[in-house]
Computed example of a mutant assay.
Amino acid sequence: MESKGIKGGIYLVIDPQMGEVILLNKLQEILEKSEIAAVQLWDNFKSIDNQSSLINSICKLCQATDTPVILNNNWKLLKQTAANGVHFDEIPKNFQEIKKNISSDVLLGLTCNNNLKTVEWAETNNLDYISFCSIFPSSTANSCDLVDFEIIKESRKLTQMPIFLAGGIKPANMHLLKELDFEGVAVISGIMSAENSSISAENYNSELKNIKNENFNNK
């Protein structure tokens, strides 16, 4: 990566259980046709023998478009792969130990819900972005409570770091996010499970741009 940081847009979450050939083919097509803010590899390796090999294959594809690859929780794999960051589902208890064992240019993100103290922790510890889950009911984010939109609004007062929204977000319901100040949306099944993933990614990007343009014009 040229510099530390994460741009706004579609934050694509991929499931390693999809199967390497299908996953890589879908990912390559998406990256060739759509702007992607980051690719996060979901922490779901139970039947994957060579995790590092799969991660590095994903990194090789993403390097062509300067798209950061972010590991979900598995920070120890950073040293074994070309991944650019790690996303924590919750505040790690051993965060200071983790910081000592990773490079200073590693991207760090954190999932937030309805507790502003989590946002304050991310701000205090200089994380690079936060992601709120779950915005809408979702089968792939069923461990998250629905987020109160007022919490997201209050969070923007606490931090200027990029805010992503996750969980149940579809192009058809993205207009409901117009009242919020955020940088992008995290999507897994809405893109990767679609028959044509690159078209689905473009639909998300189009709706996101519409929201940004409308909010800009209303300022």
Rank of each mutant, 00 (worst) to 15 (best):
K117I: 12
D148L: 04
I102E: 08
S138H: 04
N114D: 05
K79E: 04
C62L: 10
A83F: 00
N114V: 01
A64P: 05
Q63M: 15
L77R: 02
K157A: 07
F132M: 05
S155P: 03
L61W: 04
V69L: 04
N114P: 02
T67I: 14
E97V: 14
K79C: 04
K93G: 01
N101L: 09
N126Y: 13
E123M: 14
S139E: 02
L127G: 00
D89N: 11
V106F: 08
S143T: 14
Q160I: 15
T124E: 12
A141C: 12
S155A: 09
L116H: 00
K153W: 11
C133A: 15
H87I: 00
E120Q: 02
C133I: 13
S134Q: 12
E150L: 10
A64H: 13
Q63A: 15
A64C: 14
L116F: 01
R156V: 12
I70K: 07
F95C: 11
S103Q: 13
S139N: 11
M161A: 00
E90V: 14
L108M: 07
A122I: 09
S134I: 00
W121D: 10
I130A: 07
N113Q: 14
L108C: 11
T159R: 02
N101W: 11
Q96D: 15
S139I: 13
L146Q: 01
T111P: 01
N113R: 12
M161C: 07
S155Q: 00
I70P: 07
P92R: 00
Q80H: 09
N142C: 13
G85F: 07
L61I: 13
T118N: 01
W75D: 01
I151C: 03
L71P: 00
I70G: 11
K99Q: 14
T67A: 13
S134A: 13
D66A: 13
A83R: 05
K157T: 08
S104D: 07
T118R: 06
K100D: 15
Q160D: 15
L110R: 03
A82V: 03
V106G: 01
S104E: 06
